[in-house]
Write a protein that binds this DNA or RNA. Structure first.
Length: 282
DNA sequence: TAGGGACCTGCC
DNA sequence: GCAGGTCCCT
C-alpha cells in the first residue's frame, strides 16, 4: 500500500516496525504483513477502511483511469497499491498544507507535529503522546511569535491569521460550505484565506475534503503535464493561466478521478525526477 | 496576464 | 541554490 497526501505528515515508523498515525480523534498502529494489515486502534475497523479508501476497488478504478488515459499505464503498474487518503478532520489537512509552500517534507512534518502538540491529548501509545489536531480557536490563539521561535519562518504569521479568517466566515460552517460548493467556487473561496493560493487550494480540496476532481499542480505535475499533455510548454515557466489549464484538462480527461490520476503522475515524478532530469539534460 | 523578487529555514 | 508557493509590485 502506498499513500501520499497531507495526512502522511502525521504518520511515523515506530521502533518495532509498526506505523503510528493520527486522523481526527482516531489513532492507528499498523503492522503490515504479506497482504494483510494488523491494526491496533481506538476506533472500529471501518475508520481505518475509510481513511485509506480500502473500500475503493482499485482494479476498476485503474480500468477507468486507463480507459481515459492509457499514458498512465506505466505509473499504475509501478504503484498498483497507491491510494488517496480520506481524512476525518479538514482542519488538520488545511493547516498542514499551510506549512508546505516553498518548503521540504522533513521540515513540514516537524511543523505539523508542532501544531498537533497544541491540540488536546487523546491517548498515550508506546510511550508516545497522541494529540488530536487543534481546532480553529486554538490555532487562531497561537501567538505569531511562538511559531516564529518554533521554526515556522514567515508561515508563523499566516497560520493563526488563516484560522481567524475561517472563524470570521463561520468556522465549521465555512468548512461545510466548502465541502458542498461546486468545485470552482470551493477553489475560489479557499483562496480568500491568507497563505492559500491556487496550489494549496487544490491540495486542501483533494486531501482535506477528498474532492477527487482536484488537481494540485506542483513542480512534479508540471513536469508530467509538459511531458504528456502540453509538450509545447516544455522549457517555459508555469504561470497562473497554465496552472488553470492543466487542472481543467485533467478534469475533462479523467472527470472526478482527476485527483487519482494526479497522484500516479505525482508519485512517479517525485521518485524519478532526479534521474529523469539527468537523462534529459545530458 | 506575465515577469520579478522577497520570504524563513534547513538540507543537498 | 532550492524545496510539493504566495503575495505584492510593476
Amino acid at each position: 500500500m502506498n499513500v501520499t497526501g497531507g495526512q502522511v505528515f502525521r504518520w511515523r515508523e515506530l521502533e518495532d516496525g509498526r506505523w503510528l498515525g493520527v486522523d481526527g480523534s482516531a489513532w492507528f498502529a499498523v503492522r503490515t504483513a504479506a497482504d494483510r494489515y494488523h491494526v491496533q486502534s481506538n476506533q472500529p475497523e471501518q475508520s481505518f477502511v475509510r481513511l485509506f479508501s480500502l473500500d475503493v476497488d482499485l482494479r476498476s478504478l485503474h480500468e477507468a483511469l486507463l480507459g481515459r488515459g492509457p499514458e498512465l499505464m506505466p505509473y499504475i503498474e509501478a504503484f498498483p497499491g497507491l491510494r488517496l487518503v480520506r481524512t476525518e478532520d479538514p482542519v488538520e489537512g488545511l493547516f498542514s498544507f499551510l506549512c508546505t509552500p516553498n518548503n521540504h517534507i522533513k521540515r513540514i512534518a516537524g511543523m505539523v507535529r508542532y501544531l498537533a502538540s497544541v491540540g488536546p491529548l487523546l491517548d498515550t501509545v508506546e510511550g508516545e503522546a497522541i494529540h488530536r489536531f487543534p481546532g480553529l480557536e486554538l490555532i487562531s490563539a497561537i501567538p505569531e511569535e511562538t511559531l516564529r521561535t518554533s521554526g515556522f519562518g514567515y508561515r508563523a504569521a499566516t497560520i493563526p491569521r488563516a484560522a481567524s479568517a475561517i472563524l470570521e466566515r463561520g468556522g465549521s460552517a465555512f468548512l461545510e460550505r466548502i465541502q458542498r460548493l461546486p468545485f470552482e467556487e470551493a477553489h475560489q473561496s479557499l483562496q480568500e484565506l491568507p497563505g492559500v493560493g491556487p496550489k494549496l487550494a487544490d491540495c486542501i480540496l483533494l486531501f482535506a475534503f477528498h474532492r477527487t476532481e482536484a488537481v494540485p499542480v506542483d513542480t512534479h505535475i508540471w513536469q508530467a503535464a509538459t511531458r504528456h499533455y502540453f509538450p509545447e510548454w516544455q522549457g517555459t515557466d508555469l504561470t497562473g493561466k497554465k496552472y488553470a489549464q492543466i487542472g481543467a484538462f485533467m478534469r475533462e480527461r479523467f472527470g472526478n478521478h482527476a485527483g487519482w490520476a494526479q497522484q500516479f503522475l505525482f508519485h512517479d515524478n517525485m521518485l524519478n525526477w532526479r534521474t529523469r532530469r539527468t537523462q534529459t539534460s545530458s
